[in-house]
Amino acid sequence: MTVEARPDYAETVEHPMTPFLRMDRIPHVWCPGCGIGTVVRCFASALEKSGIDLDKVSVVSGIGCAGRTAGYLKLDGFHTAHGRAIPFATGLKLGRPELTVTVLSGDGDLVGIGGNHFIHAARRNLDLLVVLINNFTYGMTGGQNGPTTPLSARSSTMPFGNFETPFNLPHLAASSGAPYVARWTSLHVRRLTWSIEEALERKGFRFIEVVAPCPVLYLRLNKLGDGVQRMRYYHDEAEIRNGADPGDAAIDFQGKILCGVFVDEERPTYQELMDEHYGNVLGDDYVPMPLEGGMLGGG
């Protein structure tokens, strides 16, 4: 029996994410079967569940398909230069310490062109939540080889298969010092939402990698089917092992995808270390940056 989905009703009831999205920009730019929209949905849902003051949340993206995420979330949103989302976010956080600053961007952006910023922000334990959407390729420019393209996978600039070793991102983040490191796929919508929510409660450099399908480029170039087939692959090949050694999280072409929260520990953030250190050394002479920003009202 076919039941109508009552489109008349749907038009009058708001989608639950409406308050968190720039609905005047929907439909978004992402292709059919792309996983980025799902990650945005999970991110928005986690924000809602966390109960934090959304007026104080900023979202920063770089360039690329995942770089467009900041443009769809109804937060203070910054669509910055390619690779520079993390340093831009660093400025936001240090300039107004009371903000919750999040970074949503892609693998090419954050660990290709922006790789240096990524490891240093993790090393400093800057108080940033970084959600990296990994589709194994440069999507917006047409499927070129990226820092995460698995060995032997085809890309438009490795037409005979990739011979470069890709990054194992959880391992990279953990070894750079990130106190919260997780990986999910865009199929793990509940765990991803919960993980983002959990990370929002933590502090320091929190890193969540989300493996997501790129049907139009990565999957097509590798003859791996469409988005839903990719989601089935995640269903079959994702293995959840919380607390696993991030060193074991490398992704082979069509191999297992190790998921879970790999690192969840406490480490003082950049600002905590700064405050503590200057407090010890300078005592009462130390004037911390005001939480709402520096010298806004004059003398």
Binding site: A5, M17, H28, T38, R41, S186
Partner: peptide
């Protein structure tokens, strides 16, 4: 919708839909 009365409002469709 092809099956009426069985949806349990688990919300998975909503959460997984990339298009809202």
């Amino acid at each position: 919708v092809v099956k009426s009365g069985v949806c349990m409002a688990c919300n998975l469709c909503e959460t997984i839909c990339p298009e809202f």
